[in-house]
Design a protein around this nucleic acid. Structure first.
Length: 596
RNA sequence: GGUCCGCUAGCUCAGCUGGAUAGAGCAACUGCCUUCUAAGCAGUAGGUCUUAGGUUCGAAUCCUAAGCGGAUCACCA
């Protein structure tokens, strides 16, 4: 039984009994009472004055009296203007906590029988991952975990962009300037090695353009005619015709890159259940073009190109096949969507892709719905904003990026620095200390990137390094470590809190009641985060929870409390908070330490 | 130009489905470590919620317009 629902039903009955009016349940809303006022929940009566036919104060008083008389958990109320503040019996909170505490599945909603695929990461294999990818990966992983917690079966997938002109650029540059360099010979991670040649390509390409321009070509001509570009295009054609030498170089460089990515993913703590490769999928979707033509959803223009008309939906006409019969980007995405369904029979599909592709996905989804795909209504684009630097946009080609590996390493070092400065590594082995720095450094980074609403673009200033105080990962991790210390002490002095009986607790302090109220909100927040595909909801919640616990910790004694029942209750409350923090942080992909 | 997104404290952000005196963190200032971890707690200060209209008992929130910033609109991916 839920207290809020109970009160809402009571309000419905109040309207029936006092005003002889049937008020639907979904029109009754309770809000948490603001801190300045007495009470727990507030019912706003303004919208119902036409029903009550009396002034706001009188309406609130009448309803308040009814609730006080008929709902046992409501012990009192006060009225401020049109706001009816309800005061609840503290035993209700103790009872509620008892239920939460004894529920082994708290925080994991029952299976809903639905399958969802979350596609994220989706890197290009011509360069290492950077800060933008970190936001993508952390978001994707976290959203997948959140969906699991709300009862979905989740498949995490990664569509690797391993072919195309950009890959050929790295390959061409490597052929010219590589001198047989390998990750082993250079000591470079494979993805960084490939990225190095991508940058070299761009530099040399620019030189060639400049050269051609000085010889009288226009900028545009020069861009087309630069020998390196011609070579890259030629290489792409050879790759597509399965040229042995090109394919073998492609394999070799991709293998290096994959080895590099594996290491980076491991450090990030993200995982995938299924990899798709564009080299396998780039020809998919041709049958869908035929299908669309047959169904009359697509149409042919005079030159033979195939289009879809989305003007009725407020979009433009969109090309789905070129006049020469070759595919465009969206064609393969149509095919891949079907492939995913064929592979897993998914009900929903979430694409974690930057907001510069908003239009692309809008078009893609509209087409799939027009084609009548069963999963059409379950397609979501989790569109996130770019991560900008103070110097502007990051560009891999120009080497102005914050590299993912470097940044993670820096964060770990910063964590080490802070920890040593605070003198908190006494009693840690080297191994344990290293583990702690990693937990803290990555925790700070992940929290920093996840606490903001995904759809907003965000600024990353490397000079002002990521904080370890306030609204941060380490703040929450610290709260967990604090509680862990409490629980160790409880075990040590023999407080048994695993299956306690709280019936003796008759009074709660403010911070105890507030903590229970917050703990009770956890599942509601998970649902909200899943609905909005927004880990920031969880981040915000965990911060509030940790903050409230720290308040409790400062206000209320635990082991100095003489009454053993109350002492046990407080230990249990601490334990439940720690469990919730740990679970919640794991939904963000963040580990919590036992000591720090 | 069309479409979409954003604009809230010096900075970074909550505040969505309209409710009370607009909230956090950082930075600044003041207290609190002989009591369970001070990466903490309590407090001070900081606001014309971009602007102008509208809707109503009530608007940061909904509607319209304008301003500023960004993205996107390829027979590129």
């Amino acid at each position: 039984m839920n207290i809020q629902e109970n009160i809402i039903q009571g309000i419905q009955l109040a309207f029936q009994n006092i005003y002889n009016h049937d008020l639907p349940l979904d029109q009754i809303a309770l809000a948490p009472t603001r801190k300045e006022f007495q009470g727990t929940y507030t019912f706003v009566v303004f919208p119902f004055l036409k029903i009550s036919q009396v002034n706001p104060e009188a309406t609130a008083n009448q309803i308040g009296e009814y609730l006080k008389g008929n709902i046992p958990s409501v012990t009192g109320f006060n009225v401020v203007k049109g706001f009816l503040n309800l005061e609840l019996n503290e035993l209700v909170w103790v009872d509620l906590f008892q239920q939460i505490y004894s529920n082994p599945n708290f925080g994991q909603l029952p299976a809903n029988g639905q399958k969802v695929m979350v596609e994220y990461s989706s890197p290009n294999t011509n360069k290492p991952l950077h800060l933008g990818h970190l936001r993508n990966n952390f978001l994707g992983f976290s959203v997948a975990e959140i969906l699991k917690a709300t009862g979905y079966e989740v498949i995490k997938s990664n569509l690797v962009n391993d072919r195309g002109i950009h890959i050929c650029k790295s390959m061409v540059a490597y052929q010219h300037f590589g001198n047989g360099e390998t990750p082993e010979s250079s000591g470079l991670k494979g993805d960084h090695l490939a990225g190095k040649y991508y940058v070299i390509f761009d530099q040399e390409y620019k030189k060639q353009i400049k050269d051609l321009v000085s010889k009288g070509q226009s900028e545009d001509e020069a861009k087309k005619n630069a020998p390196l570009m011609l070579e890259a295009q030629d290489m792409l054609r050879k790759w597509e015709s399965n040229d042995e030498a090109v394919v073998s170089l492609w394999r070799q460089m991709n293998d290096w890159v994959y080895a590099g990515f594996d290491a980076t993913y491991k450090k990030m703590g993200v995982t995938f259940d299924k990899f798709y490769y564009e080299s396998d999928t780039y020809l998919l979707g041709k049958d869908i073009v035929e299908e669309g033509l047959e169904k009359g959803i697509f149409f042919k223009k005079e030159n033979g190109s195939v289009w879809v008309d989305l003007t009725e939906e407020g979009l433009d006409e969109k090309l789905v096949r070129r006049a020469d019969g070759t595919s465009v980007y969206i064609t393969q995405d149509l095919g891949t969507a079907d492939l995913k369904y064929k592979d897993f029979k998914i009900d929903k599909s979430v694409y974690v892709v930057g907001n510069e592709q908003d239009y692309h996905f809008e078009v893609l989804f509209k087409i799939m719905r027009k084609l009548g795909r069963s999963y059409g209504d379950g397609l979501y684009h989790l569109s996130y904003g770019m991560v900008d630097l103070p110097t502007g946009k990051m560009k891999s080609r120009e080497g102005t990026v914050v590299d993912a590996d470097d940044l993670m390493q820096e964060m770990i070092e910063t964590a080490e620095h802070h920890t040593k400065e605070l003198g908190k590594i006494e009693g840690f082995s080297d191994e344990q200390a290293r583990e702690l720095y990693e937990i803290l450094g990555l925790g700070a980074l992940k929290f920093f990137l996840l606490k903001v609403d995904p759809k907003k673009r965000m600024l990353f200033n490397p000079q002002e390094s990521i904080e370890f105080q306030g609204y941060t990962g380490p703040f929450i991790q610290y709260s967990h470590a604090r509680i862990a210390a409490i629980l160790r002490k409880a075990d040590q002095i023999g407080v048994s809190y695993s299956a306690p009986d709280f019936t003796g607790i008759s009074e709660l302090t403010e911070s105890e009641a507030a903590l229970i109220l917050l703990l009770n909100d956890y599942e509601k927040k998970i649902k909200l985060a899943a609905e909005e595909l927004s880990p920031s909801v969880i981040a915000q919640y965990l911060f509030d929870l940790a903050k409230e616990y720290n308040r409790f910790y400062a206000d209320v004694p635990i082991f100095h409390e003489k009454d053993l029942g109350i002492q046990t209750f407080r230990v249990a409350l601490s334990s439940m908070t720690a469990k919730t923090i740990k679970k919640g942080m794991s939904l963000l992909g963040i580990a919590v330490p036992e000591r720090m």
